[in-house]
Nucleic acid binder design. Structure first.
Lengths: 226, 226
DNA sequence: ACCGATCTGGCAGTTTGCTGCCATGAGCAC
DNA sequence: GTGCTCATGGCAGCAAACTGCCAGATCGGT
């Protein structure tokens, strides 16, 4: 194995700067396996936040695999839901994540390295036998993992008020019209919209629509066991 | 059959005024069978538009069954998609709709009557044998019908630009942030958002999020034949 | 090269959405 | 009865979103 095909990056910023272009260039497959949303995954988050992330192209498979630690708290779950609603497939593995990694287009693997002086390291490998091994491990774990929708606790049922609000929003009405239809003042309607968005964990109305759609779908067709 | 259990309503306004409360009170099941989105269904639309429609409660089944005529033009399809995205199950029957009707809570059937002097009539029936018959017919046709997502022509694939826009919106960013991430001006970003919304057929960002979620879902898991 | 179509970006005016503030009323417990 | 909590509605200030307009840049065809 040629050593010039292995690079070690120190810290998230170096990851972003030296591997971010790989993220952007990804066209077939972008896989992430991480224990939770914070540690290894923080490197991916940092890159994404700076716009270094795959274009959403037809044919690109984007999958994220986490351990149950990712469901540890409500905010993490809300984040996972937001990620899922934006079109990324998410599964949760019952066991630990044996190898935290990012696999890009079947050609590059970025592995979690040992922290050096408290700084995360990332090992970038392009040796086919390593990449294939990591990818196979991902696939095997993926196949036994459970879709997020099937293993996360269902969100608390919406109140009737929230549902009426959801319905008015779903119809594409302005707030003024929605308020009138529900027979409340504009201020009250907007207060309820804000409450619904907080419940959904959304920071924009578009995102709220994405999340709400998942919710509606779960009610019409409750999740079946995998 | 007692005649006082049959009422004939003339025109949509009378439907709204004298049967609208039944729509609102519906708690278990609200079924509509119509040939297309315009003729018989126009009465339901009018009631809904005036706020006379079922509350969105858990346990309420809302289903709409149409013939293929409902897919006749792109705008009808866009409307169907909006309806579906708001949580109503929609199926398309290959055959004609034998009996255009609304069935409410298994107790009331509203049937399409013959037009009188060009005015739609609606026959409201609460005789159990009639209601059961209409409902059975609905169910039988529903079982052989195809889910909207499975029979409508898939929407044209989004351009890469539209996808990037979708992704920024999905992340819940403000327009300013979205524009920066995509490397375009705010004006251009907003122009693209407006284009995406036109493509989706949405009149608000929330609604666009609902519709976009269906789109994303169709790409990750393409429709299987029923 | 020129020309036309299209896209971009800056700016401005407008509409819609967001939220704090405050007064009021309703409901509930004591 | 009183006091507290919570929800509502009106208002105001602000942010975010919407879109027209116009000038300039870009692209493709001849």
């Amino acid at each position: 194995m040629s050593t010039d095909r292995i690079i070690t990056l120190h810290g998230e910023q170096e990851l972003v700067q030296r591997a971010g272009h790989l993220f952007v260039a990804s066209r077939e497959e972008f896989l992430v396996a991480a224990t939770d949303l914070m540690t290894f995954s923080a490197g991916v988050n940092a890159a994404f936040r700076e716009g270094k992330r795959p274009h959403v192209v037809p044919g690109l498979t984007m999958r994220k695999l986490y351990s149950r630690r990712a469901l540890a708290d409500p905010e993490s779950l809300r984040r996972l839901r937001r990620i899922a609603a934006s079109g990324i497939e998410i599964r949760i593995s019952d066991g630990p994540i044996a190898r935290e990694a990012i696999v890009i287009d079947r050609r590059t693997a970025i592995l979690a390295g040992a922290p050096v002086r408290g700084v995360h390291t990332y090992t970038v490998v392009q040796a086919p036998e390593v990449v294939d091994g990591v990818r196979s491990l991902f696939r095997a774990t993926w196949e036994t993992a459970t879709a997020l929708a099937d293993c996360a606790a269902p969100p608390p049922p919406l109140t009737e008020q929230a549902r009426d609000t959801l319905r008015a929003l779903s119809a594409g009405h302005t707030d003024e019209t929605g308020a009138r239809l529900l027979g409340v003042s504009l201020r009250t309607y907007r207060r309820r919209v804000a409450d619904l968005m907080a419940t959904l964990g959304a920071s924009s109305r578009f995102q709220a629509g994405l999340l709400a759609r998942d919710l509606l779908r779960e009610e019409v067709t409750p999740a079946a066991p995998r």
